[in-house]
């Protein structure tokens, strides 16, 4: 599968519904989101502003309302939610 653009060796993909996610899965997703935000922010702010990047990344994840959204806005049912 390797190509100049795609190197997916050893990577497994899946597509799941929210109700298939465990508490640990959500924790890992939130951590990944914050980690990726922090990494991107650090590239933008510069290496000497690591603490600021982490602080803003944490704020961004909170602003994303990760917890609140997943708990209150998504109906586990597969059909449309109104």
């Amino acid at each position: 599968m390797a190509s100049p653009e795609f190197n997916l060796e050893g990577i497994r993909f899946d597509v799941v519904r929210p109700e298939q996610m465990t508490g640990e899965d959500w924790g890992n997703a939130a951590a990944l989101l914050t980690n990726a935000f922090a990494s991107g922010l650090q590239r933008q702010l510069g290496p000497d502003r690591h603490d600021e990047a982490v602080a803003v990344a944490n704020t961004m994840t909170r602003a994303d309302d990760f917890e609140g959204f997943r708990q209150s806005r998504i109906d586990p049912a597969s059909g449309p939610t109104i």
């Binding site: 990577i11 497994r12 899946d14 597509v15 799941v16 519904r17 806005r73 998504i74 449309p80 109104i82």
Partner: peptide
């Protein structure tokens, strides 16, 4: 519990796509 920012919105068919490193089972994407 709905955040006021989402009160005029509705959602359906939520999907999560994950990429997992098979070597250590860590979340890559």
């Amino acid at each position: 519990q709905v955040d006021p920012r989402f009160k005029d919105q509705s959602f359906a068919k939520p999907r999560i796509v994950r990429a997992v490193d098979e070597q250590n089972e860590s979340l890559a994407g």
